Measured scan of single mutants.
Amino acid sequence: MSDQEAKPSTEDLGDKKEGEYIKLKVIGQDSSEIHFKVKMTTHLKKLKESYCQRQGVPMNSLRFLFEGQRIADNHTPKELGMEEEDVIEVYQEQTGGHSTV
Score class of each variant (00 low, 15 high):
Gly28Val: 04
Leu62Phe: 10
Met82Lys: 02
Ile27Thr: 07
Gln94Arg: 08
Glu49Gln: 07
Val38Ile: 15
Ser50Thr: 15
Ser99Cys: 08
Lys23His: 10
His43Ala: 13
Leu24Gly: 02
Glu93Ser: 10
Thr76Tyr: 01
Asp12Cys: 11
Tyr21Trp: 11
Ser32Arg: 12
Gly81Phe: 15
Lys78Arg: 15
Gly96Pro: 09
Pro58Leu: 09
His35Glu: 07
Asn74Ile: 08
Glu83Arg: 13
Lys17Leu: 09
Lys37Arg: 14
Lys39Ile: 02
Phe36Ile: 04
Gln92Gly: 11
Leu24Phe: 04
Glu83Lys: 15
Glu84His: 04
Ile22Asp: 01
Tyr91Met: 06
Asn60Val: 06
Val57Glu: 03
Leu13Ser: 13
Arg70Gly: 13
Glu11Asp: 11
Glu20Ile: 12
Asp3Met: 06
Glu79Phe: 03
Gln55Arg: 15
Ile88Gln: 03
Tyr51Ala: 02
Leu80Lys: 04
Lys48Phe: 00
Val87Ile: 14
Ser9Met: 08
Ile34Gly: 02
Ile71His: 00
Val90Ile: 06
Arg70Cys: 10
Met82Asn: 02
Lys17Pro: 10
Thr95Phe: 05
Leu24Cys: 09
Asp15Pro: 12
His75Ala: 11
Glu11Trp: 04
Glu20Cys: 05
Ser2Gly: 12
Ser9Arg: 11
Val38Thr: 13
Lys17Tyr: 10
Asp3Arg: 09
Asp3Cys: 04
Asn60Asp: 12
Ser31Pro: 07
Arg63Leu: 07
Gly14Val: 13
Met82Ile: 01
Phe64Tyr: 01
Phe36Val: 04
Gln69Phe: 08
Glu93Lys: 06
Lys39Tyr: 07
Val87Asp: 07
His35Gln: 10
Thr100Arg: 10
Glu85Cys: 14
Asp3Pro: 06
Glu84Lys: 13
Glu5Gly: 15
Thr100Asn: 08
Gln92His: 09
Tyr21Gly: 07
Gly56Ala: 07
Lys45Ile: 14
Thr10Leu: 13
Leu44Pro: 03
Lys23Arg: 15
Thr41Trp: 02
Lys39Val: 00
Pro77Gly: 02
Val57Gly: 04
Lys46Asp: 05
Glu79Thr: 03
Glu18Ile: 10
Lys37Asn: 05
Val87Glu: 11
Glu67Cys: 11
Phe64Ala: 04
Lys16Arg: 12
Lys23Ser: 11
Lys46Ser: 06
Met1Ile: 08
Lys48Cys: 00
Glu83Trp: 07
Gly68Thr: 02
Gly81Arg: 07
Leu62Arg: 15
Asp30Gln: 06
Leu44Val: 00
Gly28Pro: 03
Gly81Asp: 06
Asp73Lys: 01
Ala72Tyr: 13
Lys46Gln: 10
Gly81Asn: 03
Arg63Ile: 09
Glu85Arg: 14
Gly14Met: 08
Tyr21Glu: 06
Gln29Glu: 01
Glu33Ala: 06
Glu20Phe: 12
Gly19Glu: 13
Ile34Asp: 01
Glu79Asn: 06
His35Ala: 07
Lys17Phe: 09
Ser2Asp: 14
Met59Val: 14
Asp30Cys: 00
Glu18Val: 11
Ala72Cys: 11
Glu83Thr: 15
Ile34Arg: 06
Ile71Asn: 01
Glu11Leu: 14
Glu11Pro: 06
Glu18Met: 12
Gly81Trp: 07
Ser32Leu: 05
Ile22Leu: 07
Lys7Ser: 09
Phe36Tyr: 09
Gln69Tyr: 07
Ser31Cys: 09
Glu79Gly: 13
Gln53Ala: 13
Leu65Cys: 03
Leu65Asp: 01
Leu62Tyr: 10
His35Ile: 10
Met1Phe: 07
Asp86Thr: 10
Met1Arg: 08
Thr41Phe: 00
Ile71Gln: 02
Glu89Asn: 11
Val101Glu: 07
Gln4Met: 09
Gly68His: 00
Ala72Glu: 03
Asp3Lys: 09
Thr42Gly: 06
Glu67Pro: 04
Val90Arg: 01
Lys39Arg: 11
Gln92Asp: 07
Ser2Arg: 13
Val38Trp: 01
Gly14Gln: 14
Gly56His: 15
Lys48Trp: 03
Thr100Ser: 11
Met40Gln: 03
Leu65Glu: 01
Glu5Asn: 09
Glu67Ala: 08
Pro8Asn: 06
Lys7Asn: 09
Val26Trp: 02
Glu33Gln: 08
Val101Lys: 07
Gln92Cys: 13
Glu11Cys: 08
Val101Pro: 06
Asn74Gly: 14
Leu24Val: 13
Ile22Val: 08
Val38Arg: 01
Glu93Gly: 08
Ser32Met: 08
Asp86Phe: 00
Val26His: 00
Thr95Tyr: 00
Cys52Ile: 00
Cys52Asp: 02
Cys52Tyr: 02
Glu83Asp: 11
Val57Lys: 10
Gly81Ser: 15
His35Asn: 10
Glu5Ser: 12
Asn74Ser: 14
Leu13Met: 08
Lys39Leu: 07
Asp3Trp: 05
Tyr51Met: 01
His35Gly: 06
Met40Arg: 10
Met40Cys: 10
Gln4Asp: 04
Leu80Glu: 02
Gln29Leu: 11
Pro58Cys: 01
Ser99Gly: 09
Val101Phe: 08
Gly81Pro: 02
Lys23Ala: 09
Lys39Pro: 07
Glu11Tyr: 06
Tyr51Cys: 03
Gly97Val: 04
Met1Asp: 07
Gln92Leu: 06
Pro77Tyr: 01
Leu65Arg: 02
His75Arg: 05
Ile88Val: 14
Tyr91Pro: 02
Gln69His: 07
Asn74Trp: 07
Asp12Lys: 11
Asp73Cys: 04
Gln94Cys: 11
Pro58Met: 00
Ile22Ala: 03
Lys39Phe: 00
Leu47Gly: 03
Glu5Leu: 10
Asp30Met: 05
Glu79Ile: 06
Asn74Phe: 13
Glu33Thr: 00
Val90Ser: 08
Gln53Trp: 15
Val90Pro: 05
Lys17Val: 15
Ser61Trp: 07
Gln92Val: 14
Glu5Tyr: 13
Leu13Glu: 08
Ser99His: 08
Gln92Thr: 12
Asp15Met: 07
Leu47Ile: 08
Thr42Trp: 01
Ile71Leu: 02
Arg63Trp: 13
Val38Ser: 01
Ile22Tyr: 00
Ile22Thr: 14
Val101Asn: 07
Gln92Glu: 08
Pro8Arg: 12
Ala6Pro: 12
Tyr21Ser: 12
Lys37Pro: 03
Glu67Ile: 01
His98Arg: 10
Thr76Asp: 01
Lys45Arg: 13
Glu83Cys: 09
Ile71Gly: 04
His75Val: 07
Met59Ser: 07
Asn74Tyr: 14
Val26Arg: 05
His98Ser: 10
Ser99Leu: 09
Gly19Cys: 11
Ile22Ser: 06
Glu89Lys: 06
His75Glu: 12
Ala6His: 11
Gln55Tyr: 14
Gly28Lys: 05
Gln4Pro: 11
Lys45Glu: 11
Gln69Ile: 04
Met59Ala: 09
Ala72Ile: 15
Asp86Gly: 13
His98Tyr: 10
Ser99Asn: 10
Gly28His: 04
Glu89Asp: 09
Asp30Arg: 10
Glu5Trp: 10
Asn60Cys: 05
Leu24Asp: 02
Glu20Thr: 01
Glu89Ser: 11
Gln94Met: 11
Leu80His: 02
Ser61Val: 02
Leu44Glu: 02
Tyr91Ser: 04
His75Ile: 07
Lys78Asp: 14
Lys48Ala: 01
Glu20Trp: 05
Ala6Tyr: 05
Asn60Gly: 14
Val87Ala: 13
Gly56Ile: 05
Tyr21Met: 09
Glu5Val: 14
Gly28Arg: 11
Val90Lys: 02
Lys17His: 10
Asp12Gly: 13
Phe66Pro: 02
Gln55His: 09
Lys7Met: 02
Thr76Cys: 08
Gly97Ile: 00
Lys45Phe: 05
Pro77Trp: 00
Asp73Pro: 01
Gly96His: 07
Cys52Glu: 03
Asp73Glu: 03
Met1His: 07
Glu18Leu: 10
Pro58Asn: 01
Ile71Asp: 03
Asp12Phe: 10
Gly14Ser: 08
Gly56Phe: 07
Met40Gly: 10
Glu85Asn: 15
Lys46Trp: 10
Cys52Ala: 01
Gln29Gly: 01
Ser61Lys: 02
Ser2Gln: 12
Gly14Phe: 14
Glu84Leu: 05
Pro77Asn: 02
Lys17Asp: 11
Gln55Asn: 10
Val101Ile: 12
Ile88Pro: 03
Gly19Ile: 12
Val57His: 01
Lys78Gln: 08
Val38Met: 15
Gln53Ile: 00
His35Asp: 09
His43Leu: 12
Leu24Ala: 03
Gln94Ser: 13
Val26Gly: 04
Ala72Thr: 15
Leu44Trp: 02
Pro8Thr: 06
Ile88Ser: 04
Gln69Lys: 12
Gly96Thr: 03
Ser61Asp: 05
Val57Asn: 05
Glu33Val: 09
Gln53Met: 04
Tyr21Ala: 07
Gln55Lys: 15
Arg70Glu: 15
Asp73Ser: 00
Glu67Tyr: 06
